[in-house]
Amino acid sequence: MTSRSEATDTTPLPHSIALREAENDLQTLRGRLRTVAEFIHNPAHDFAARHALALSLGLPAPTPAAARQTKEASR
């Protein structure tokens, strides 16, 4: 059985520190992925560049309809 002082110890365990760091890294990566996805689906940017980026990252590609709407709006 553990002693009372061991049961009330609040020192984080090494695996909990590593888990917290991994969760922070994952949150950072999700934020970056969200930024990239917003860029890919923003019709204000060049369609070919957005399409190539999506394909190289394995993300859903933007639709050409959005590219046509942007060209028509700029006329």
Rank of each mutant, 00 (worst) to 15 (best):
M1W: 10
T2I: 10
T2L: 14
T2N: 15
R4A: 09
S5M: 10
E6D: 12
D9T: 02
D9V: 01
T11Q: 03
T11E: 06
P12Q: 04
P12K: 01
P14D: 08
H15Q: 14
H15S: 14
H15P: 01
S16L: 11
S16M: 13
A18N: 08
R20C: 02
Q27W: 06
T28Q: 08
T28S: 07
R30Q: 14
G31T: 01
G31W: 03
G31P: 04
R34G: 08
R34S: 14
R34H: 15
V36E: 03
A37I: 09
E38N: 14
F39Q: 03
A44K: 14
A44G: 11
H45C: 05
H45S: 01
D46T: 05
A48L: 08
H51G: 04
H51D: 06
A52F: 00
L53V: 04
L53H: 00
L55Q: 12
S56Q: 11
L57K: 05
L57S: 00
G58D: 02
L59A: 06
L59Y: 07
A61N: 03
A61I: 05
P62F: 02
T63Q: 10
P64G: 06
Q69R: 14
Q69P: 07
T70V: 09
T70I: 06
E72Q: 15
S74Y: 10
R75G: 07
R75K: 12
